[in-house]
Design a protein around this nucleic acid. Sequence first.
DNA 1: GTATATGCAAAACTTTTGCATCCTT
DNA 2: AAGGATGCAAAAGTTTTGCATATAC
Lengths: 144, 144
Amino acid sequence: MMSNSQELKSSGLKVTLPRLKILELFQNTMAGDQRHLSAEDVYRLLLIEDMDIGLATVYRVLTQFEQAGLLIRRNFESGKALYELNGGEPHDHLLCLSCGKVIEFNDAPLQARQNEIANEYQFVIQERAMTLYGVCKDCQAKQK
Amino acid sequence: MMSNSQELKSSGLKVTLPRLKILELFQNTMAGDQRHLSAEDVYRLLLIEDMDIGLATVYRVLTQFEQAGLLIRRNFESGKALYELNGGEPHDHLLCLSCGKVIEFNDAPLQARQNEIANEYQFVIQERAMTLYGVCKDCQAKQK
DNA sequence: GTATATGCAAAACTTTTGCATCCTT
DNA sequence: AAGGATGCAAAAGTTTTGCATATAC
């Protein structure tokens, strides 16, 4: 298991407080249902923790982390980018339009079919993004 | 076959020149490879055609058309929304990160699997979005 | 004639950039 | 000591909104 400092170094990034804090933030929020954070989210959460950080730094660090493969950048329909920790396995999303909840799943047959389609078009996949928008089980119950 | 005027009326929208022109624009560009247009794209294409239209109107009309189901709004990784004509059939995208080309495909097994996954989570799908990002056949050839 | 749509300008939001200062190595 | 990182402010890009005028029905 690599420490966060080692993880940053091996990505060619200097170990600084903002970078460590942002990395920890994503690791800690991973447990909750709030796995996807915008730059503004990160900024506000760090201010709450007394971190005196600039929004511009947050944007820069998020971009660097994405390029380093530590985070994945997602574009849902909200108009702003959300980031999540890169857990290694590709996965897709169900996004509830009623409550905003994001359900993640990892489905091998689906990915296999994606690969077959890419092969048909002789297309080399670098990144996958699949989101089904709709209404989750809980919200269906509430609407009745 | 409904005329464009009828199509607007049956969506509860008054028939105005900007709306007709924008609808025609999407119908005409459907033939080419430029099926996905941003608000700015629409604005510039209409200015070329002598239409003296305001950018704000373009945004308003695109939003109305999306709500009426005439257009589909897509959020790829570019940071701005793209719209395409709603052809009725759901379809997904391969987006080339090298040349920006968008390849569309319609794959029944893939959609069937999406439905199965949604059922597992008792999730009601309203909209699908799947995009594979990578390098297209042509760009692979060029890179050699 | 009335209600809605449009155009323009201003504002709101998200993201990027320039630059002086500070921190990591 | 040197190069990169940070914070602040300003700028750039996208989308929304207020309001007076024009247009569709």
